[in-house]
Design a binder for these strands. Structure first.
Lengths: 121, 121
DNA sequence: GTCATATGCAACCTCCTGGTTGCATGTACC
DNA sequence: GGTACATGCAACCAGGAGGTTGCATATGAC
């Protein structure tokens, strides 16, 4: 399961390209903290998320917009509140893309090691 | 093996904070393509990496500097060349951080589901 | 030594990002 | 209806990111 990165090499490159925005969204300390809060604290409103943060509520709103654009969070209105919740799907895709790169490299190293051992036993 | 994200919650947050630069480095299409090239093409020189790319060699140099600052690549001189190679360690750390967030969220959902089923069997 | 190749350094430009402030709107609640 | 809370919208700002061009410097080949 869970492999937008699976398949042929060309598809892998497409998946990598599509993952860039996700990684970019993850590449900010404040946003990572928001994700951590959401992962353990459940659906939270903007004000709740902004509580304890060093920056303005407006800044948090912008960060949430970035996360939403990357598909990492969803919002749902409940009355006058707007609760945000995680979507782990892009997270899994990103993770398997990292796997792919790491695997290819490690396989390379392994082949190289085997070659050396074969050359001088 | 491979878990800077393991341990207590406070440590997890520190790990998340330390992962931000890695994700930021991954959050660019060109840089992802460089990593892909390196993962399958082995140690490559700047000129080799710049070949086929739409941007200047100088731009590639800057991207490599970003990747190096995140610990994702290392360089080694061989004569007048400078060959770059992957380091998958930060990749693994980043991957387990993603795992952590996803797991916590999924556990939350699971607990919620169990609660609902318990409430109305 | 000379020439071509591989890289380094620096200045410069543009645009996006993260952040702020101020004000408007919507919705509970009494 | 009025008040308080939750959010939305817009303008604005500083700094950094990504990119370019031009020139300097090393090093391998002949």
């Amino acid at each position: 399961m869970a492999s937008t990165c699976g398949g042929r090499v060309s598809r892998n490159l497409t998946a990598l390209r599509r993952s860039a925005p996700v990684f970019a969204a993850l590449g900010d300390e404040t946003r990572l903290r928001l994700l951590a809060k959401l992962s353990s604290g459940g659906p939270l409103s903007i004000t709740q998320l902004a509580a304890g943060e060093a920056v303005t509520r407006q800044a948090i709103t912008k960060h949430l917009a970035v996360l939403a654009a990357a598909g990492l969070v969803r919002d749902a209105r409940t009355g006058r509140e707007r609760r945000w919740e995680l979507d782990t799907a892009p997270l899994n895709t990103a993770r398997s893309c990292l796997d792919l790169v790491a695997q290819r490299w490690d396989q390379r190293l392994e082949r190289l090691r085997a070659l050396v051992e074969d050359d001088a036993p």
